[in-house]
Computed example of a mutant assay.
Amino acid sequence: MQQVRAVVARAKGEPVSVETINVPDPGPGEAVVRIQACGVCHTDLHYREGGINDEFPFLLGHEAAGVVEAVGQGATVEPGDFVVLNWRAVCGTCRACERGEPWYCFATFNAEQRMTLEDGTELSPALGIGAFAEKTLVHSGQCTKVDPSARPAAVGLLGCGVMAGLGAAINTGGVTRGQSVAVIGCGGVGAAAVAGAALAGASRIIAVDLDDRKLEWASNLGATHTVNSSSTDPVAAIQELTGGHGADVVIDAVGRPETWKQAFYARDLAGTVVLVGVPTPDMKVPDLPLIDVFGRGGSLKSSWYGDCLPSRDFPMLVDLYQQGRLDLDAFVTEEIDLDAVEAAFERMHHGDVLRSVVVL
């Protein structure tokens, strides 16, 4: 067992604290990873606010990259491997995996042992990772080996938000060359969806947001047009920018009933709507005439983690980053230390950053 510093959320809505925690030696299939960088994601704030569950105390952080330090018997990585952590370690045997769709795996792995506070209180690691820590314990299947020369602060973001956005465009939305794409909501996930659409060769990429700063970020990542929906009807604007038809693929990166309805009506006939923004449990699908669902055709999809397969997607995207074809550095607004996570939540809440990244 080792003792390390980590960011803990002890109670709903209370400020996080940096505490000493116990990290067990890895058991069968497990790995201890020395964290080098971890992004501050909205999901961590949801945990702190009790929006995921009430299994406090939480060990926060999950968008991370680091180096494997020790492994248990049967682990799939080795000490010294540079890895990006993922929260969907596929099992290989569930009904989704057996039908050849492991990105939908219904029985993903986490470490069996629990990290604890100094007094032995068990911690609930965010998304089974808990990486606002000098070291963390995960299942080895949550470790995806990538190019060790890559910048940890940038590639660690593939662990959640950036992969969710990129995958919403490329994997779920199936964006291809020459298509038109609209992205509603251009925070971290939406900006990544813009970058994914550009990477896939979309000819027209329309970024929609209430904040001109976010629209500027989206432009820098490949948006060809921007719409500030605080003053312009986004559905009408998207239709006007696509010859009156609507976009081939519309991605809702907000996850609210009103934005989903905008996405539904902003797409072309036989187009695709992708929901990647996460709604709260109380939100309901808006009043929508069923004839419109039938009459417009196409697909209404939700995107789980960008429908990614980490072993396939992470190394490929890191290679594209290393080649200068995917600007992951653009997502790193600031680098901070463990003590600054609470302040980073506040900046994120106000939309001041794409990502704050804890660097250890």
Rank of each mutant, 00 (worst) to 15 (best):
N53Y: 10
A263K: 00
N53M: 06
G351E: 09
A198V: 01
A247R: 06
G178I: 12
H350F: 07
V32Y: 10
K284L: 11
G39T: 01
G298L: 06
E63I: 03
I129M: 05
T224C: 07
C143K: 09
K301P: 03
P148H: 01
V332E: 05
S299I: 01
G130K: 05
S299W: 11
D212Q: 11
A9I: 08
E49M: 15
D319L: 01
I21H: 07
A343F: 04
T259M: 00
V18I: 08
L288I: 09
N220T: 11
T232I: 15
L275I: 13
S299L: 13
A150C: 12
V194Q: 11
V77M: 02
P57G: 12
R95E: 14
E334K: 15
V359F: 07
P234H: 06
P310K: 12
P152F: 00
W103K: 12
L328W: 02
A6H: 08
G92C: 11
A107I: 07
R325K: 15
L137W: 14
T333A: 06
A223N: 02
A193T: 05
H46C: 04
E78D: 13
V235G: 08
V278P: 01
S299M: 05
V353Y: 03
A330K: 03
G187S: 05
E98F: 10
G61V: 06
L199M: 15
G80M: 13
D209Y: 12
D233P: 12
A223I: 08
D292F: 00
G74P: 11
A96C: 06
M348C: 05
T43Q: 07
W304M: 09
L320V: 04
S299N: 14
A164P: 00
A218M: 04
V16K: 06
Q142M: 13
A37H: 01
T76S: 14
A65I: 09
P15R: 05
S203W: 04
G50M: 10
G190H: 02
S180F: 13
V40Q: 03
G165K: 10
S299F: 02
L317G: 07
Q322C: 08
L210Y: 03
L59S: 04
